[in-house]
Design a protein around this nucleic acid. Structure first.
Length: 492
RNA sequence: GUUCCCAUCGUCUAGGGGCCUAGGACACCUCCCUUUCACGGAGGAUACAGGGGUUCAAAUCCCCUUGGGAACGCCA
């Protein structure tokens, strides 16, 4: 099989660099990626930056970084490092393809499928007001029947115009065989004469999208449901240009807790934030994949490779899904547990460093501690509170320990414990040794139950509740244990 | 308002005419483990939006209603 044969599957993700990448966009990218990989096709990253006012290079950088962090590698598009084009169908930034769009707009103009429109904003607004009651928001341009020559004269005379697609005289209904939704029938008067080229000559989304998808030889378009009405417009453009349309699949929306579309305004879940909060890319991918798609055997914890293997568009769910942070967190904890300790240790370093925590450099110690803490970690940031008891600088007797310190047997328990620790021969004590000392304290003082346990815990972590002592104590150096015991004792 | 899309536990979902007294997962509740918290284990409660058809048989097919969502830009 050659890599460029005509039946090759080609799909794309086409973000606009006007903000960050949110989970909705990430999922669209993921489904396209999975579909490409599953079918041995190509996954292309195209940049839709025709909104000059809002597109920024920083935003492009951010979106590309997030995509790269997720691990969704693209075969053509902009380079993840240099942001320069690569691939045979470039440029891949729409702002660099203006001449191309202009050419096809002129073709539509010449063929009478589009026209120059001189309506002003105020006039359009007035039309809207008048038609509102009838539920018709479409513009009705008096210029639609002007000849091209006449319009050109008018422009030469200094009038500015947009190019609109002419919907009058089109077929009554358009039928879309949607890969996710089945047959969708659009009445062609569902849309009005929409803009192709802005007054400055800058093309608009629906137009660029068609020209690019065609020229870049896209075979399938998977995008969010909100684009359904756009698809009608695009179908019209394909027809006007005499091109065959690709296959479309409109996937469901990701909703917030209020069942509304996740919107950036309302603080949509940004991939970058998720990364910061300590979620693993594999967990993000896994969770969003399952929002609208299911594994044939209902497996839930999946690697990307497993997803590729099982991916089948017939399992794409047409209804919207709420992003549930609780389940997402659980899923992250599962991915955390699957991570090898050496990688996990690296991953938590930024979080520990931010708190200035200093932990032993010994890999064996690190491995051991991780084995113990891993089951309690849901996100990477949890490592901070888990490891804090092991950091000498962070040790402090907390107010919640006050009551324990006042108990009658506490002083005796702490004294006995302190003595035993001081007499301990090695740098660290084993779990067995700790249990033995604990027993000795019990025998010596007669304290038992919480009278025994809680004072010792205070002497180890500074508070009466927390992780199991037999886990914590073997991870603490003798010198630390001694210092802490003395500090606790001094408060009795 | 108009058009389009959607409709199974609180949430994500399985299901595609008989296998469904509807299965799984997260969350929740109870118990066990644990001389704390958590982890782990065992149980439990909870859903086919409503109404009409079609059919011997409907969660599954059709229609209507209702509810939710989206779109109606010189944004993408």
């Amino acid at each position: 099989m050659t890599s460029q044969n005509s039946s090759e599957v080609r799909v794309r993700f086409a973000p606009s660099p006007t903000g960050y990448l949110h989970v909705g966009g990430a999922r669209t990218a993921l489904y396209n990626y999975l579909f490409a990989k599953k079918n041995g096709g190509k996954f292309i990253l195209r940049i839709e930056d025709t909104d000059e006012a809002r597109s920024t290079e920083e935003s492009l950088r951010g979106v590309v970084d997030d995509l790269a962090w997720l691990g969704l590698k693209w075969d053509e598009g902009v380079d993840p490092v240099t942001l320069k084009d690569f691939g045979p169908y470039g440029p891949y930034r729409q702002s660099e393809r203006l001449e191309i769009y202009k050419k096809y707009a002129e073709q539509l103009l010449k063929d009478g499928k589009a026209y120059y429109c001189f309506l002003t904003d105020a006039e359009i607004e007035k039309q809207r007001e008048e038609n509102k009651a009838a539920g018709n928001f479409h513009v009705n341009s008096p210029y639609q029947d002007w000849s091209l020559d006449k319009a050109l004269e008018h422009i030469k005379a200094g009038n500015s115009a947009v190019v609109r697609f002419k919907t009058k005289g089109l077929q009554k209904d358009y039928i879309l065989h949607d890969l996710v939704r089945g047959e969708v029938k659009f009445p062609s008067d569902m849309v009005g004469d929409f803009v192709l080229l802005r007054s400055g000559g800058m093309p608009v989304y629906n137009f660029c999208c068609v020209v690019d998808d065609y020229l870049m030889k896209m075979t399938h378009i998977f995008r969010a449901e909100e684009h359904l009405p756009n698809t009608l417009r695009q179908l019209m453009i394909y027809q006007g240009l005499g091109w065959a349309a690709p296959q479309f699949g409109h996937i469901s929306l990701i909703l917030d807790e209020d069942r509304q579309k996740l919107s950036k305004r309302k603080g949509a879940v940004a991939c970058g934030i998720l990364k910061q909060e300590g979620y693993l890319n594999s967990a993000v991918l896994n969770y969003i994949a399952l929002l609208g798609w299911s594994h044939p055997e209902e497996k839930e914890i999946l690697s990307v490779d497993e997803m590729i293997k099982a991916f089948d568009i017939s399992r794409l769910n047409p209804s919207g899904a709420i992003f549930d942070r609780v389940k997402f967190k659980w899923m992250n904890s599962m991915h955390l547990r699957a991570l090898p300790n050496t990688e996990l240790w690296q991953a938590i370093q930024p979080y520990l460093a931010k708190e200035n925590m200093q932990l032993p450099q010994d890999p064996t110690w690190q491995d051991k501690s991780l084995n113990l803490f891993k089951p309690y970690m849901e996100i990477l940031a949890d490592a901070v509170e888990l490891y804090r008891p092991l950091d000498d600088k962070s040790y402090a007797i907390l107010p919640e320990a006050d009551e324990t310190l006042k108990w009658e047997p506490t002083k005796a328990v702490l004294t006995a414990w302190s003595d035993l620790v001081k007499a301990h021969p090695g740098d660290y004590m084993s779990e067995e040794e700790f249990l033995k000392y604990q027993d000795e304290v019990k025998n010596k003082t007669g304290a038992k139950g919480k009278n025994l346990f809680m004072p010792i815990r205070v002497a180890v972590i500074g508070k009466p509740h927390g992780a199991e002592l037999k886990i914590l104590v073997p991870l603490l150096k003798k010198s630390s244990l001694v210092a802490r015991a003395e500090q606790a004792l001094s408060k009795t």
